[in-house]
Amino acid sequence: MLKLIRADLYRSFHRFYLYLLAAGLAGICLLLTFQARGHATAADLWRMAQAQLFGFPLMVIPMLPDIVFTEENREHTLKNTVAFGVNRAELYGSKTVTSILLGLLLAAAVLGVFCGSSLLLLPRGPEFTGELVRQFFVRFAALCSVYVGAVAVAAVFTIFLHRGALAVFAYYAAIYLSRYLFLLLHIPKANDYLLYSQVHPIVSGAPDAVRQAVLISFVTFAVFLALGAALFRRSDVA
């Protein structure tokens, strides 16, 4: 599986889109810092980011399987790999892992720009303590489990629907609209197990709530990874 991941990373790093995406996200972070200049401290900005912006990456997640999966569907390159006898479950797993690795790299770059620019351009403020920094990074790390689960959801739609735009639309519907569906179906309790519902407990909940949210996210990841692999195993490769 390592060689499959290595090959996908080799290809992804040759793709301008990846750098454009990183630059765009880093640019948004810089813009935030510039906007905060003069009326907020770095501590204010970090707290605001933790409370309100940590859910934002869920909107960007479908772009990761798009780089890794959709392009292979569009360019008909998957057949070159499958015809070489690569195990399909292994191939699907490797592509999901590659999507996650790319996401982590993007997150590191964006987080670096956010933290660096806020510390360089804004006054830290008296509330910028070691505990604030620890909480920020621990909760972000915990939130990565939600992002990982979201990658698995997005990957399933990419495999099932083949078309990038349709897969992205289905992903947004699954992440953001499914809670309304459960309300309509009079099963509001199901909302507690949705990925989107795990963001709030992680960014502001007690340690127990964080642990439960992380567990739900990893279970979602495992379920959708297995579902995607099963779908991919029986699908035709064009």
Partner: peptide, 30 residues
């Protein structure tokens, strides 16, 4: 199948890679 080389329908490669880079991708993968 690892001992089979194939070309089915139109050749599929990554448009933003050169010929060598495309083959290098598959060399790493294999």
């Amino acid at each position: 199948r690892a001992h089979i080389g194939s070309m089915i329908e139109t050749p599929g490669f990554f448009p933003y890679l050169s010929a060598e880079e495309n083959l290098e991708f598959y060399r790493i993968q294999r």
